[in-house]
């Protein structure tokens, strides 16, 4: 049994779980944050993407114990004070979601992508950067549009990662 503590969406949480517990299980089952989804068993679909210490990772491919002491942000923690994150707003505005199942992972990946690339994103880059996120509904067209729009709106405010 592992005792894990971490900060999730700004709140300190701790809990006991088997050492084999995946971060996604801890988030969904121990914390009841069911916005993070599981869409595959081979670490390929990205439905489970969360941010750990500021980086997008697949929470199905990390143990809860590995995240002990980390800062975790899930889809539930993205909007602040009732105001949607610009990426969330852009997904709605551009119809970047249909069934919504891939959406939390898509949005978390998009936020991470924009943080790394800032305003320099173009369509080709967005498509390549989405390699780890599978959507079966949208054909990606509107997801790409949403990410580009959010990136341009966030452009000035975003720090471009140091080279």
């Amino acid at each position: 049994m592992a005792n894990v503590s971490m900060t999730v969406n700004g709140r300190s949480v701790s809990g006991q779980c088997e050492d084999r517990t995946l971060l996604v299980q801890f988030i969904r089952e121990n914390l009841g944050l069911t916005g993070t989804h599981v869409g595959c068993d081979t670490s390929q679909c990205g439905a489970c993407v969360v941010h750990v210490d500021g980086k997008a990772v697949k929470s199905c491919t990390m143990l809860a114990a590995q995240a002990d002491g980390s800062e975790v942000v899930t889809i539930e923690g993205l909007a602040s004070g009732g105001e949607l994150h610009p990426v969330q707003a852009a997904f709605r505005e551009h119809h970047g979601l249909q069934c919504g199942f891939c959406t939390p992972g898509m949005i978390m990946s998009a936020v991470d992508m924009i943080q790394r690339h800032g305003g320099r994103l173009d369509e080709k880059t967005v498509r390549q950067e989405l390699e780890g996120n599978i959507c079966r509904c949208t054909g990606y067209h509107n997801i790409v549009k949403a990410v580009l729009d959010a990136a341009s709106k966030m452009g000035d405010g975003t720090k471009v990662a140091a080279e």
Partner: peptide
């Protein structure tokens, strides 16, 4: 290698 999330880990 892989995708951005895989490359982060």
């Amino acid at each position: 290698i892989g995708d951005p999330h895989v490359r982060h880990m």
